Simulated scan of single mutants.
Amino acid sequence: MPHAPTDAAPDAATATPLSPRRRTLLDAALHVIADEGLKGLTHRAVDRRAGLPEGSCSAYWRTRNALQAALTEYVAGALLTDVDELTARITQCDGDARKVEETLALFLRWLDQRELLVARLELTMAATRDEELRLLLVDHRSRLVDIVDGIMTAAGKEHGGARAEALVASYDGILLAGLLQPAEGRRDFLIRSLELLSASLTAPDGE
Rank of each mutant, 00 (worst) to 15 (best):
69 A>C: 15
110 W>M: 09
10 P>Q: 11
64 R>T: 14
30 L>P: 10
41 L>T: 05
179 L>H: 02
38 L>P: 02
176 L>Y: 10
185 G>F: 14
5 P>Q: 15
76 A>N: 09
115 E>M: 05
160 G>M: 03
201 L>T: 11
176 L>A: 09
95 G>P: 03
177 A>G: 11
203 A>V: 11
127 A>Y: 10
51 G>H: 03
4 A>F: 15
101 E>D: 05
4 A>L: 15
90 I>W: 03
96 D>F: 07
145 V>C: 10
173 G>S: 01
50 A>E: 00
187 R>P: 09
138 V>P: 06
111 L>R: 01
144 L>V: 02
117 L>P: 01
63 T>L: 00
16 T>H: 15
34 A>M: 07
131 E>F: 14
16 T>W: 15
141 R>S: 06
52 L>A: 14
156 G>A: 08
90 I>V: 08
135 L>H: 13
9 A>N: 14
182 P>I: 03
107 F>Q: 06
70 A>F: 03
118 V>S: 02
150 G>E: 12
120 R>C: 04
154 A>V: 10
129 R>T: 13
203 A>S: 09
113 Q>N: 08
4 A>N: 13
148 V>E: 11
97 A>L: 07
155 A>P: 02
123 L>V: 07
192 R>Q: 10
162 A>T: 04
32 V>L: 00
75 V>I: 12
191 I>H: 10
187 R>T: 04
130 D>H: 09
175 L>C: 08
170 S>N: 08
117 L>Q: 01
91 T>A: 07
83 V>R: 05
74 Y>C: 09
133 L>R: 09
173 G>W: 03
124 T>Y: 08
118 V>C: 04
197 L>K: 05
167 L>M: 08
92 Q>D: 05
81 T>K: 12
27 D>F: 11
155 A>W: 07
82 D>K: 07
129 R>C: 12
134 R>D: 11
34 A>Y: 00
155 A>C: 07
47 D>C: 01
135 L>A: 13
197 L>Q: 12
96 D>Y: 09
15 A>Q: 14
143 R>S: 05
163 R>W: 11
5 P>N: 15
74 Y>S: 07
51 G>R: 08
102 E>T: 07
45 A>W: 00
22 R>W: 05
112 D>W: 04
84 D>W: 05
33 I>G: 00
103 T>F: 08
41 L>H: 01
167 L>K: 06
190 L>Q: 02
68 Q>L: 14
112 D>F: 09
187 R>Q: 13
32 V>M: 00
133 L>G: 03
133 L>N: 03
78 A>R: 09
130 D>N: 13
54 E>G: 12
82 D>C: 06
7 D>Y: 14
137 L>K: 07
14 T>E: 15
7 D>K: 11
18 L>H: 09
125 M>Q: 14
6 T>D: 15
1 M>V: 11
161 G>V: 12
24 T>I: 14
61 W>L: 03
5 P>M: 13
154 A>H: 14
56 S>I: 03
29 A>S: 01
178 G>W: 01
150 G>D: 05
205 D>F: 15
74 Y>D: 10
152 M>F: 07
17 P>C: 03
54 E>Y: 06
131 E>P: 12
92 Q>W: 03
72 T>F: 05
